[in-house]
């Protein structure tokens, strides 16, 4: 499986961990450490999938998600967050996120979700599964 994945997180630790996991499965990884950088890189690099943190300095993840969807209504975004609340998962779903991964994440779970989403030809209708 190949594809370009953009990891958006203000935590270098989380970016490093996701990069390691994704590169182990031969995905190309680009990084952004805040929302503005993410929007710029999305425009320039056109990644196949965005893995987006919820809680970042400057612009919150759901704001970034809304702007990505304005740029591309079919933007594929997975939320990666420490927030374990069901209500947060619902908010992400309503905002158009395709899935939701809780931190700390397991490599297998991350790769399963990324592989599934990138293998789908058309965009499914948001999160429809329980937590991994």
């Amino acid at each position: 499986m190949s594809g370009k994945v953009m990891v958006v997180d203000d935590s270098a630790m989380s970016r490093r961990t996701l990069r390691r996991i994704l590169e182990s499965a031969n995905y190309e990884v680009i990084e952004a450490d805040d929302g503005m950088a993410a929007l710029e890189k999305y425009f320039l690099e056109k990644p196949d999938l965005v893995m987006l943190d919820m809680l970042m300095k400057g612009m919150y993840g759901l704001e970034v998600l809304a702007k990505l969807r304005e740029m591309n209504k079919d933007a594929r975004v997975v939320i990666v967050s420490a927030d374990i609340q069901n209500s947060t998962r619902e908010m992400a779903k309503e905002a158009g996120a395709l899935d939701f991964i809780n931190k700390p994440f397991a490599a297998e779970s991350v790769l399963n979700i990324v592989t599934r989403i990138l293998s789908e030809e058309t965009r499914p209708n948001g999160i429809d599964r329980e937590a991994e």
Binding site: S81, A82, D83, I84, Q85, N86, S87, T88, K103
Partner: peptide, 9 residues
Amino acid sequence: NACLGVFGN
């Protein structure tokens, strides 16, 4: 988040 998220849920 793990702790307060439980409160929320």
